[in-house]
Design a binder for these strands. Structure first.
Length: 267
DNA sequence: CTGGGGACGGGGCCC
DNA sequence: CGGGCCCCGTCCCCA
């Protein structure tokens, strides 16, 4: 995904919007931010109030072969699939909305049900939707109703007005909308971010602050993820392993490159 | 071409 | 419910 640089809706940003990022670290006084009245920039004093604790994974007592974070085994094969989380089970909170708008298929289903509901011919309907409490005389009828109507609506209920994404919770939607509105703007270069901590990390590119130090060498990083990737370079056995040649890589992207380059052409 | 660093995006979890 | 943080991941660039 190309990195977005969408900041156009912030009126006060003008020519500085599309200035390239400063290529060399520039020491910027943290007090520079304080001089701005806009509240979007967090004060640098609160950027990193917590002292960085060295990564527990790479303790000196267990160099390079300690268990990886999250219970990852260094040679456990491929990392988990990219899609980490499947949508949560449908909640019953949205079921109250299903009686109002009927899809054409549902209307047809309703008519069929109406025909079948002859009090002289049909016994009580036995199959009830657990989401909207509608009842159907046949299991297949209920199944079609749920597939085309109830489940589809309850699975994703909150739609983004800026794109087609939908979310199961309002909180998740609001979080996503921030990726469109980008309310956190860097005062130095005008770049905008969706979350304050993303801006904090970006500001380090200006200040040169690197609070994440490698316990095994003198390198330091502004980004914890980059330190984590760097720690892999100290390991004999890296996290991502080719399932064909057993070669290990520090990053999934390197494993992918390796696979695409021909090692694993045989599927 | 490969490996590594820099920068960043986004979902989930916790408080 | 919102903010902060963590983790996983991607993309780009460079040596």
């Amino acid at each position: 995904m190309p990195s977005s640089f969408v900041v156009g809706f912030h009126r006060f940003l003008s020519a500085s919007l599309f200035l390239p990022l400063l290529s060399s670290p520039v020491i910027v006084s943290p007090y520079l931010y304080e001089s701005y009245p806009m509240p979007v920039i967090p004060q640098p004093e609160i950027l990193s109030s917590r002292a960085y604790s060295p990564i527990a994974v790479w303790t000196s007592a267990a160099p390079f072969h300690a268990p990886l974070p999250n219970g990852l085994s260094p040679l456990s094969g491929y990392p988990p699939p990219l899609g980490r989380v499947s949508p949560p089970p449908p909640s019953d909170t949205s079921s109250k909305d299903h009686s109002g708008s009927e899809s054409p298929v549902s209307d047809e289903e309703e008519r069929l049900q109406s025909k079948l509901s002859d009090p002289h011919a049909i016994e009580a309907e036995k199959f009830q939707c657990n989401l909207c409490s509608k009842t159907y005389s046949t299991f297949s009828g209920l199944g079609k109703h749920k597939q085309l109507h109830c489940d589809a609506q309850s699975r994703k209920s909150f739609s983004c007005k800026y794109c087609d994404k939908e979310y199961v919770s309002l909180g998740a939607l609001k979080m996503h909308i921030r990726t469109h509105t980008l309310p956190c703007v860097c005062k130095i270069c005008g770049k905008a971010f969706s979350r304050p901590w993303l801006l904090q990390g970006h500001i380090r590119t200006h200040t040169g602050e690197k609070p994440f130090s490698c316990p095994h060498c003198s390198r330091a990083f502004a980004d914890r993820s980059n330190l984590r990737a760097h720690l892999q370079t100290h390991s004999d056995v890296k996290k991502y392993q080719c399932k064909n040649c057993s070669k290990t890589f520090s990053r999934m992207s390197l494993l992918h490159k390796h696979e695409e380059s021909g090692c694993c052409v045989a599927h």
